[in-house]
Amino acid sequence: MADKVTWNFGEFLSARSVAGETIIELAKKYPNVWGITADQGGALKQFKKDFPERFIDVGIAEQNLSGIAAGLALEGNIPFIFGMIPFMSMRACEQNRTAICYQDLPVRFIGTGGGLTSGAGSTHNAMEDIGIMKSLVNMTVLSIGDPNMVRDIMLLSMTYPHPLYLRLAQGKQDRMLYEPGKYEFKVGMGLIAREGKDVTIFAHGEMVFEALEAANLLKEDGIDTRVVDMYSIKPLDKDLLFKCIKETGNILVLEDHLMDCGLASVISDACMDEGIYPRKFKRLGIPQIYAGFGSGEQLRKKYGYDKTAAAAAVKDMLK
């Protein structure tokens, strides 16, 4: 499987297709795995042929879908909801809370189009999802950039007894970051994607690649940048956070999400609560704005949270 995949850093792979292949692998092994969608199940194209009795498409009705997921899970099943993030997180928000989280049911949300990557404008952009999902009691929030990680996380989810939200980036063209099989991923853990001693950039999702690019830019100026893939946003890897604060002093949080209710907020909450403060702290992400149209790359540049902006922010911080 994954260890046989040819792999090159930074190459594109579709996270959706990894998810689509993985759910087939899981369904073969586990008779209680379901793939369900509200007319957003492109990744389930093969699954629905192989496992028609465990596939449900309810049409465009996300609230209903989350309710059905709860019903399936109440009967001992593990439903994977496939969909676009804004509708799964906002249209079905109360169902996610009351039908799923209140009853602490093992429903998996596989959401595509994280941040401003949809290209479809503000109706389809996903800027609030982490803020919404992390506020639901019992919900776990992971944000995944490297498409191969999706498989690892879906595999580990089979023994995870709580609701789990998996935020993917665009889902069609996602950059590979880690050699498959090299790292073990866990709920509540982060990963040092690049070592460094002057500053740490915390990122999640596709912004990890952007952070690594920023680190390369900073290297030219003699700045040694650590990059942490904080894929587990709730629960947060506080040990890793405080270790990085201790070792690099300065921290920058870079994310494709509203910057006042995503990872940066989680990190600043943790610092305040524990009384462990970075030397300097800076956050870059989506400001309070409906971003409009354009590609993810164009919008990151426009709103000042791409690699160039990140490198500039680090330099400013180290002045």
Binding site: I56, Q63, N64, L65, S66, G67, I68, A69, A70, G71, L72, A73, L74, E75, G76, N77, P79, E94, Q95, T98, A99, Y102, Q103
Partner: peptide, 18 residues
Amino acid sequence: STGSLGQGLAIAVGMTFS
């Protein structure tokens, strides 16, 4: 668990599918 109105039938549908 119920109380938020309008949510029960979808959950029942999920249980029925199962």
